[in-house]
Amino acid sequence: MMPDTRVGTTFGHEFIGVVDQVGPSVQNLKAGDRVMVPFNVYCGSCYYCARGLYSNCHNVNPNATAVGGIYGYSHTCGGYDGGQAEYVRVPFADVGPSIIPDWMDDEDALLLTDALATGYFGAQLGDIVEGDTVVVFGAGPIGLYAAKSAWLMGAGRVIVVDQLDYRLEKARTFAHAETVNFNEHNDIVVHMKKTTDFLGADVAIDAVGAEADGNLTQHITSAKLKLQGGSPVALNWAIDSVRKGGTISVMGAYGPIFSAVKFGDAMNKGLTLRMNQCPVKRQWPRLFEHIQNGYLKPNDIVTHRIPLEHIAEGYHMFSAKLDDCIKPIIVAEAS
């Protein structure tokens, strides 16, 4: 839940497009170039950008220091219009966007602008070492990519937890993961302990975030009544499912107000909690290699392609998880 989301703002932080016009100081792009645009708006020159923390840029978001700039993601994230439109303004065109390589599929390029980069980043934050057991909460796009990426980093087991069987099926086929439907277990944390020799997983990744279900009180107070920054059900399960001394990677998005997170358990178990919005462009060179080598096929998870004029239906379908929807794509010039 992101406060200061204004009526009239265009959403959309994951987009590619064709350059229509460039500003006078732009050196590296020209009209007609096909570009992929990271969801981060960033200057490339501040204290944080100079250190690779592009998602934490200090020069682009006057509304908050608690988050960087993000296209189409509320005024709390800078008040930038997003890409679900025919035109979008992209500041710092020599820093963020890249020309889409000729060999790259458009949909793969699109998914690199957030979902794939974020899932891959989430696995990295887990500090996975050879043979680790990694549990991923959430089998949406980010969770699927995080699970897939965990193998690249040498995981010995990858377990994906969700409540939707069609998504768990995708976790098995796309991400080669073991799967658990939390609705089939009275206590998912106890189940996770049983399946990890009663130690717990080495790494847990929260790929759910603010709208997590599975605990009625948490869900109602956050997703419905907005009394919390998010429903930390998945995060609390992650904290309780991981072994003592383990690592939690948080990729799920939460709002800036308080949430009922079990920090006591995290402290007493000596956990390492790592998290951030993904600095997208930093991930690209290595992800390009993985795609070219055939290790990753990003658009395997795309389930729907929605014309821009039907975007309202697309939103409802995705939100309500209709028609086995996992990853819908909005197509601006769809015929």
């Binding site: 020599d94 820093v95 990295q124 991930q283 060179p285 290595r286 080598n293």
Partner: peptide
């Protein structure tokens, strides 16, 4: 691709902070 990024040196987000202003494209 199992283990392709086993070495943390191959992981683009490691270390978390890497001072490299020259790579951002900012002029």
């Amino acid at each position: 691709g199992w283990g392709a990024d086993l070495d943390p040196a191959d992981r683009p987000a490691v270390p978390r902070e890497r001072f490299a202003p020259e790579v951002t494209g900012a002029h």
